[in-house]
Simulated scan of single mutants.
Amino acid sequence: MAKEYYLYVKGKAVPVSEEVYKAYWKITEHEKYLQRKDWKHNVMSFSALDHDGHFVDNIIDEKIDLEKIVEVKMQIEELNKALATLTKEERELMEAIFYREESLRSIGKKEKVSYQTIGKRRDKILEKLREILKDKI
């Protein structure tokens, strides 16, 4: 006696061949495997984002403030323009202090002046930059 195979469609048992039955379950088990893998790696399908018919609204990341990013980018551009107006010595001092994070003492030792002198130069340069950027930022 041959074994009978059934698949359920809308709650009703439909007789199918062994080949169709095995193919159906192979696909079904593969889908379950992929779903378990997605859960394990916290992957979300695009169709999950379209639960209410507003796909585009559901993928917007509201944690990112695009206006703020653009504003900061424009400020950085203005700062770079202002830095370009400095003399070579002024620019080198600013790079040493703010980019290479050298101490005022170590810079003073290199230039054979006191750290207070380096601090005064720094303050003078920063005031110059403030004046340049006053109306732009």
Results as ranks from 00 to 15, higher is better:
Met94Lys: 00
Leu7Pro: 00
Trp39Val: 05
Asp52Lys: 01
Ala13Thr: 02
Lys3Pro: 09
Ile27Phe: 07
Lys81Thr: 13
Asp61Val: 01
Ser45Tyr: 11
Trp39Gln: 11
His51Phe: 12
Leu104His: 07
Ala84Gly: 04
His51Ile: 14
Lys37Ile: 02
Tyr99Cys: 06
Leu49Ser: 04
Glu67Ile: 09
Glu4Ser: 09
Arg100Ala: 05
Glu92Gly: 03
Lys22Met: 06
Thr85His: 00
Arg36Asp: 15
Phe55Gly: 01
Phe98Gly: 03
Glu71Val: 11
Val14Gln: 06
Ser17Leu: 02
Asn80Thr: 04
Ile76Gln: 03
Ile27Asn: 08
Tyr33Glu: 15
Lys12Trp: 02
Tyr8Glu: 05
Glu67Met: 11
Lys3Gly: 08
Leu34Tyr: 10
Phe46Cys: 05
Leu66Phe: 13
Arg105Thr: 14
Ser47Leu: 10
Glu95Arg: 07
Ala23His: 09
Ser17Asp: 09
Tyr21Thr: 04
Ser103Thr: 15
Phe46Pro: 07
Glu77Arg: 06
Glu89Thr: 15
Glu19Phe: 11
Tyr99Pro: 02
Asn58Ala: 13
Val14Leu: 06
Val20Ser: 08
Ser106Ile: 15
Lys3Ala: 12
Glu95Phe: 04
Leu93Ser: 05
Ala82Val: 09
Glu89Met: 10
Trp25Arg: 02
Lys37Asn: 07
Trp25Ser: 10
Tyr6Thr: 05
Asp65Ile: 06
Lys32Trp: 00
Gly11Pro: 05
Pro15Ala: 09
Ala13Arg: 11
Gln35Tyr: 07
Ser47Arg: 15
Glu92Cys: 01
Lys68Met: 12
Leu86Phe: 03
His51Met: 14
